[in-house]
Simulated scan of single mutants.
Amino acid sequence: MAVIMSSWTENYGDSSESKDLLTQFKGAATAIASDEKIALLGAIQSLFEGSMYTFVFLWTPALSPNDEDIPHGFIFATFMLASMLGSSIASRLMAHSSPSVESYMQIVFLISSASLTLPIITSILVPPSNVKGGGISFAVCLQVLGFCAFEGCVGIFWPSIMKMRSQYIPEEARSTIMNFFRIPLNIFVCVVLYNVNAFPIAIMFGMCSIFLFVACLLQRRLLVIAEKPKAEERFRNSEEEPLNA
């Protein structure tokens, strides 16, 4: 630190490119309004991240509603392993041109939505226990499997969403545009966490599941828009082939 402070000069960047915060957000709003793909991508990321951040605070009370003695460290490590496996799967998927990122992410959002419905299903099918303490029940084991599936989807999500962002969002405004969508995201997460004790766990997970299903629908719309130019190009090529022949 002493060497850096004494020998390095400050890098102020290109002064001609510096813009105030209001100008940056105006440019981000204009880009979002003019390109549906950017709006869809931002909405998808906000819905998924909102569900993910809510899950971070809900998984512990969901697995131990009656203060059961559960191995929190082991479960968290399993979640991280599932996320790592998801990232490995994403790297293999993105190494091939087919299926496209827009295509397989529909399935990822659908699986993540289904995985967060397990606390709702188990609360309906398995009668709740009023006995404090105890060990891990069968219903909790099912929830852990579902949560691991969700963490695997999280591992696939991050590299995949970054690739789509690099494709559809211009680099010079990428960070501002994504921060534009994080404003309502952070407000939502704060409101949820402030009222986390006001609603049953099943309702909270149901809300997250709905958000992920909406993200799946938006991803489908993004796929249709992304495939439209390719379909038109194939159609033009098919018309030109008889003429060339």
Rank of each mutant, 00 (worst) to 15 (best):
M84I: 14
P99V: 00
Q106K: 11
M84P: 03
H72V: 15
R92Y: 10
D69N: 13
V101C: 07
S100H: 04
I120M: 11
P119V: 01
I111M: 13
L85T: 09
V108Y: 07
D69W: 00
H96E: 10
S91C: 05
D67I: 06
A82H: 00
H72A: 15
S115V: 08
I75L: 07
L116V: 13
P99A: 08
G86E: 05
I75E: 05
I89V: 15
F109I: 08
P71A: 07
S88K: 10
E102T: 11
I89A: 15
I70F: 01
L110K: 09
F76I: 15
S83W: 05
V108D: 02
T117N: 12
S83M: 14
I120T: 14
T78G: 15
F74Y: 01
S115I: 02
P119A: 07
A90H: 00
Q106A: 13
S113M: 07
P119M: 03
H72L: 15
A90D: 04
L93G: 02
I121T: 06
H72N: 11
M105A: 05
S83R: 09
L118D: 03
L110V: 11
V108C: 13
M84E: 00
A90P: 05
S64P: 02
I121R: 02
S103V: 02
I121M: 05
